[in-house]
Design a protein around this nucleic acid. Structure first.
Lengths: 123, 123
DNA sequence: GTACGACTTCAAGTACGCTTGAAGTCAAGA
DNA sequence: TCTTGACTTCAAGCGTACTTGAAGTCGTAC
């Protein structure tokens, strides 16, 4: 499989696939007359990457997640630790959004016309 | 008041205040022998900016919020519309975080060792 | 008068996740 | 053979919100 087909299967741009290789998210692909050649396992890897992105991991974190070097990676402890930490992050984010929402609602409840004169903000 | 004092009062770096002027968030300050001179109203403006940022507005949106040109700005309708729209955005964001959390929890519930072989992700 | 800190402008750098462009190579179809 | 489209590398650009650096000016204290 060449990059175009891989990208189609994964729903990505070819430039993205190259970028992932460049930042070490994908192992350097073998080349056949200069072109990258892939097996189906790379589709799986891209699926996992997409999943992790959706779950809120940055690409650098995804690299950690997929990194197979440590002993923990053989037991599945590694990614579980990272996932648990991300859950905590998400909780914090949720709380922050709650705060933003409260702030907005409070301002909306104020009858002021000009934000710069709003007693709930400027005090 | 000169930039250093304003920045101290607002809890910002002087570079940030200059940046805000550059992008039009603050009106261009008058200069006295080359230096920016401010009145206290600028502190209020920076307070509103900080509030809006906390509430999730981008700086470009804050500019909209503070923009006094339209007729709506005299009635307070303008910022209320923007705030209501932001509330909707925040709801969407919250939902997305809920999705991320579910994804993570589901993966954690799976007994798999290798994410690339996890049936809940790769399928 | 000189040292010092705070100020000035302008340009470039940072992080993140890509995309875009230039210039060139390769394989398949007409 | 020639065209076409997909590929290659390498470098630079985008958006957001700033920060940093260079090179120079200003005001105050000594």
């Amino acid at each position: 499989m060449i990059i175009g087909e891989l990208a189609r299967l994964a729903g990505l741009a070819t430039s993205t696939v190259r970028y992932y290789e460049e930042i070490g998210l994908l192992p350097r692909a073998a080349r056949a007359s200069g072109r990258r050649v892939y097996g189906y396992e790379t589709v799986n890897r891209l699926t996992v990457i997409a999943f992790a992105k959706q779950a809120g991991f940055t690409l650098a974190e995804v690299r950690q997640l997929l990194d197979g070097s440590a002993s923990e990676s053989r037991t599945g402890v590694r990614w579980r630790k990272l996932a648990a930490a991300k859950l905590v992050e998400l909780e914090a984010l949720e709380a922050q959004i709650g705060t933003m929402t409260s702030l907005l609602k409070e301002a909306l409840r104020c009858g002021c016309v000009d934000l710069e004169l709003c007693g709930k903000i400027v005090k």
